[in-house]
């Protein structure tokens, strides 16, 4: 090959890549964000009750998940607590999900499947409340908002082993 000195500095196998990313205005940043973390970060203002959720669930969800949440064309959302170590485990929101935050995050972004992103924050709180109640985790008179949802402790909270978690050295 040519002697290194013959290689012009403006031409090489690699040069510093361009920097073409456009800064995102702070306002746009907050607006686009819908991630909800287990500690409640990301939860919006608003509130909703188990009773409100029951009505919404029948109107918007029951057609696919069944009137009692036990599943239909879409999967079951209710039941199965205590079944995980059995031969016939039932994995549901109540039996399996480690965090209530996931319920808010997921319903807001993805449900109902035919109209994702259509629910208001109050409605998502209400639906989350009803599903947690149907799973025996919240009482019938519960109302959820950012603080109370973050405080819910799910039955299977400790049920997961993070195998390749980058925060821990591999075993």
């Amino acid at each position: 090959g040519p002697a290194p000195s013959a290689v012009p500095a403006a031409l090489a196998a690699e040069l510093a890549p361009p920097r073409l990313g456009r800064p995102v205005p702070a306002e746009a940043l907050a607006r686009g964000d819908r991630h909800v973390f287990p500690d409640g970060r990301g939860l919006p203002a608003g509130r909703g009750s188990v009773a409100q959720g029951a009505v919404l669930y029948q109107a918007q969800c029951a057609a696919c998940h069944g009137v009692d949440g036990r599943g239909l064309t879409a999967e079951e959302l209710v039941g199965g607590v205590g079944s995980l170590a059995s031969a016939e485990p039932e994995k549901t929101v109540g039996s399996y999900w480690p965090h209530a935050s996931t319920l808010f995050d997921f319903i807001r972004r993805a449900m109902p499947l035919h109209a994702p992103g259509s629910l208001k924050a109050d409605e998502v709180y209400a639906l989350s409340a009803w599903l947690l109640h149907a799973n025996g985790i919240l009482p019938a008179e519960a109302v959820l908002d950012a603080a109370s949802l973050a405080a819910v402790r799910m039955p299977n909270r400790a049920g997961f082993v993070a195998v390749d978690d980058p925060r821990r050295p591999p075993p």
Binding site: H35, A85, K91, Y96, H99, T102, G159, V161, A162, D164
Partner: peptide, 28 residues
């Protein structure tokens, strides 16, 4: 992020339930 999101598809799904009732998570 400092922490994972614990999204629906890394908790409810794509985790592997073991005989002891605990589930393997973040197995990529």
């Amino acid at each position: 992020s400092a922490e994972p999101l614990m999204a629906r598809n890394e908790t409810s799904k794509y985790t592997e339930l073991q005989p002891d009732g605990r589930a393997r998570q973040f197995t990529w």
